[in-house]
């Protein structure tokens, strides 16, 4: 199926409130969805026989922020975080990209982690990918069975892949920087 057909099918099923956009001009065309609805959309993407996206190839978070004031004027994006789902279907042999965009902090309060539902019950690999996204980017996945850090130590502070991350001065007596 082409990206337009996938998009149309999702809009027919969920309506324009939950399927908020499509970019078919990009190198990898993507469909934008409402973050709160990602779990039901994911379940539909996997179970619908025409879509049948049985494999989650990649799940990752991207922090759109330019901290350098000089470069910020030319920065082509609004500050936000997005979770990107790269899906593939072994039965239908087609791919798609689903994006969920949300503010960098919940309620614009620095320190309040943004939240969205987990998809780990749909694709088992999302369990580890979501743990990594939480570890690196500080995104809470609601309903995740074991949302703890995966690459960093459990007592690590901050979310290293955020653009405004401050490198620690010391960790357990080891000096940084």
């Amino acid at each position: 199926m082409t990206i337009q057909e996938i998009h149309q099918r999702l809009v027919d099923r969920f309506g324009a409130d939950k399927i908020t956009g499509i970019n078919d001009k990009a190198i990898d065309p993507w469909i934008e969805v409402a973050p709160a609805a990602i779990a039901e959309i994911g379940a539909f993407l996997k179970s619908d026989p025409d879509l049948a996206f049985d494999s989650l190839n990649n799940l990752t978070a991207v922090d759109y922020l330019e901290t350098d004031a000089k470069l910020a004027a030319k920065f082509p994006y609004q500050p936000h975080i997005e979770i990107v789902y790269h899906l593939f279907s072994f039965t239908r042999k087609h791919r798609t990209v689903i994006k969920a965009k949300f503010p960098r902090w919940m309620n614009d309060q620095v320190g309040q982690l943004p939240e969205l539902p987990t998809v780990s019950h749909i694709w088992a690999i999302a369990d580890w990918h979501e743990r990594e996204a939480y570890d690196m980017m500080g995104v809470q996945f609601l309903g995740h069975p074991n949302l703890v850090r995966i690459l960093c130590p459990d007592d690590w502070e901050g979310y290293p892949l955020r653009k405004d991350y401050q490198f620690p001065e010391e960790y357990h007596g080891v000096r940084g920087q």
Binding site: N57, N58, T60, V62, D63, Y64, E66, L71, K74, F75, P76, Y77, V84, H86, L161
Partner: peptide
């Protein structure tokens, strides 16, 4: 299957370089 995901923002360095 090793995946690379690159997001550009108009500069020479990517905004996000992800290795799956």
């Amino acid at each position: 299957q090793m995946g690379f995901y690159i997001v550009g923002d108009g500069q020479a360095e990517p905004l996000r370089a992800r290795a799956k």
